[in-house]
Amino acid sequence: MSEKISRVAVIDIGTHSVLYLLAEKGKDGIVRALHQELRSPRLGKGFGKTKRISHKAILKTLPILNEYLTLSQKQNAHRVIAVATHALRVAENQWEVVKIFREATGLEVHILTEEEEARASYSGAMYGREISGPVCMIDIGGGSTEMVLGVNGQIDSLKSIPVGAVTLTEHWNGETEHKVLEIFKLHFNAMPVSSFARVLVGVGGTITTLAGLELGLATYDPNQVDGFWIEFSKIKNWYERLSSLPPEQRKALVALDPDRADILPAGLLILKTICTLGNFKKVLVSDRGLRFGIALQQFEVN
């Protein structure tokens, strides 16, 4: 008989950040996040132009993976799962990068499909939430934005849109706002978002950082961020304020996560656009997302 898995470490290799989650399933059957870490090597830097992960970005990422592996051992994780999202999913040298990661760390990195990423983000975001009726869940990442429509925890439809905070920042120009609006209009026409969902739930660094700013947090506190509602007017105000600031002032203001300061306006533009097209007046912030969803999957198969 195989050993029961009750403690799982998940490493999420994104376009901007590499994140760590230690989750545990208690005797009461409830899954809880015990520990989280975030580093921002920006694996997808310059990716929008070259379609390749740079050697420099790989070298910045490797010590983070080793750090997380060591941490998982100290925390007695029964299993370590490493997943990758948009940047590795579409990179021309994806398998070369995966091989380097495996040979340098021993990690077998699973590159998530668009559907796998969207489903895991949705299950993580919705876990333990009592929301009746249709919901639109969004996960604004560095390289893509996942949108899922669901009812009472069951998925109705999903979409992965290849526009994220990093890729959008690297292509920013005077036409950006109009182009983002047109891109998301196409996807909204393909999904009945405004007629289907009345509640918007958001996960990802853009939204959690915004919640921290709105709450005035000096250090990130998931207990305060999770379940916090942000009004559309606040989203719009923060977008306009941050977009108008020079880089150093913006970085000082976003002291909670200074490595995200340069891409935060792009992430907020995506959020603002979704709220506008879907006629959402506010967004419910979830600290749980992709990593938590991956952990839930591991507990389900054991």
Rank of each mutant, 00 (worst) to 15 (best):
L245S: 07
I263P: 03
G267L: 08
A266E: 03
L217G: 02
G216H: 02
D259Q: 15
L245N: 05
L217W: 08
E240M: 12
G216P: 06
L253S: 08
E214M: 12
T219H: 13
A266F: 06
L215Q: 11
Y239M: 08
A261K: 11
F228P: 10
I270L: 10
V225Y: 02
F228I: 11
G212F: 09
L256G: 06
I263W: 04
I263L: 06
R250S: 08
L242F: 07
E248D: 14
L253K: 00
W238P: 06
A252V: 12
E240P: 09
A266L: 05
E231C: 11
L215P: 09
L268G: 02
K236F: 11
L268C: 08
D259K: 12
L245R: 04
L256R: 06
L264G: 03
W229E: 14
I235G: 04
A252W: 05
Q249Y: 11
W229S: 14
S243I: 10
A218N: 14
G227Q: 08
L268P: 03
D257V: 09
D221G: 02
I230C: 01
S244N: 10
P222W: 04
A261D: 00
A252I: 11
F228M: 14
D226I: 07
E231D: 15
G212H: 00
K236C: 12
L268I: 05
Y220K: 09
S233Y: 14
P265M: 02
S243W: 08
K272P: 04
D221S: 09
A218Q: 14
T273D: 01
L253G: 00
L215A: 12
R241V: 05
L215Y: 07
D262E: 13
E248R: 12
D259C: 08
F232W: 13
I270E: 03
G212A: 02
N237Y: 15
E248H: 13
G227E: 01
L264S: 02
L271H: 07
I263Y: 07
D257E: 11
R260S: 03
V225P: 01
